[in-house]
Design a protein around this nucleic acid. Structure first.
Lengths: 195, 195
DNA sequence: AGATTTATCTATCCACTGTCAAGATAATTT
DNA sequence: AAATTATCTTGACAGTGGATAGATAAATCT
């Protein structure tokens, strides 16, 4: 009787490890994240990841790169279908928040962790794409650098506080009401438009 | 010849451990924080902290409690001497930022870590003091809950991005110019006053 | 005062972590 | 077919947090 032998070579271990890392991160949090646990989850020996990512920081660097792309996509998803440029900017902030709520540990990984190597070219590029997107949104409403900072800081403040569940004051609001409050907060920081 | 014997009992180990923990946190960062290293720094065996704090999370809970008080004090320090209530609210935001820049790891400990036990009564009380302070500031300018959220989120966004060194756009500004930009960002979110 | 209890700290042990080095296996290239 | 390279396993190492048992000193009680 021949059982289904696990092949010595995984085939696509790199992707499998990234997926496993994301799950581990979501379940155990970044502060309890374990490389060996990731390897076990991917059904591979504890030293296997080293060949693909070097060390644990290398793995988290690669994961951060993907996370930045998801983060960017989350903003785009909210903006889809918005015609007014001011509305688009507000929706970008909502997408910022969506990501922080849907994947809080990834959000913390890319914004509050020192483990990823932020001098990594791929990671920097992915981060720049997200930043340049905000820049473009503000340009479209005739704003300057200070306005970029305003939208970014407000979006980030809401998102980070929400990811840390520090916004108890909004806990008793229903979804619609909460969304209105947040839209207003975001609109508050945008430069005065002539629209 | 009798050397100066280290006494078996430390005398004030609890305080010494908290001080050592703060230094360790500042030097190695929260993700590389080690209880054994703290104990070594305090000149005590690695199991000594257990009696005072239970486990490492207990130590970080106690440290967070102190950190919240310093955080609060940092806001008060900036507000001192401000007569106009709107100016006071803006200055509170600057104090918020001061703390994040002066003690970034403590800032992250109290706002982005899961290690402290935030259900601890002392810690909750210290956090509430800081929150209620913001509440009062907004009350004094006739604002409501949404305005508290606005000031808080903007302050937190700026502070967290600065703590993570993500505000490269402000890197080339001199201190005075940077402070003016930040004051404007904070003032932007305050409710319209009749002053 | 002397005896007993309590608080504080040390020494050892365990399971777990990340990293390294050496070897096994398979795919690729020559 | 042979040699080289890429991939993965195994085993070792120092470091980690926590539990336990024992040592020491301080506090409390007669």
């Amino acid at each position: 009787m021949t059982t289904v032998d696990k092949p010595y070579h995984h085939g696509d271990l790199r992707s499998a490890l990234l997926a496993a890392a994301e799950l581990e991160l979501a379940e155990r949090g970044i502060e309890a994240f374990s490389l060996r646990q990731v390897a076990k989850r991917a059904g591979v020996s504890h030293a296997a990841p080293a060949h693909h990512f070097g060390d644990v920081n290398g793995l988290l660097t690669a994961l951060s790169t993907e996370a930045f792309r998801w983060f960017h996509a989350s903003m785009l998803a909210r903006e889809a279908g918005a015609s007014d440029p001011r509305d688009r900017a507000v929706r970008a902030g909502l997408g910022y928040l969506d990501f922080a709520l849907a994947r809080p540990t990834l959000f913390r990984l890319i914004f509050s962790s020192k483990k990823p190597d932020f001098s990594d070219p791929d990671l920097m590029a992915a981060g720049d794409v997200a930043y340049n997107h905000l820049l473009r949104l503000i340009e479209d409403i005739g704003g300057g650098l200070a306005d970029v900072a305003a939208l970014w800081a407000m979006s980030h403040g809401i998102a980070d506080l929400a990811a840390g569940q520090r916004l108890r004051m909004m806990a008793d609001l229903d979804d619609a009401a909460r969304q209105k409050v947040i839209r207003d907060l975001l609109a508050r920081v945008l430069p005065k438009g002539r629209t």
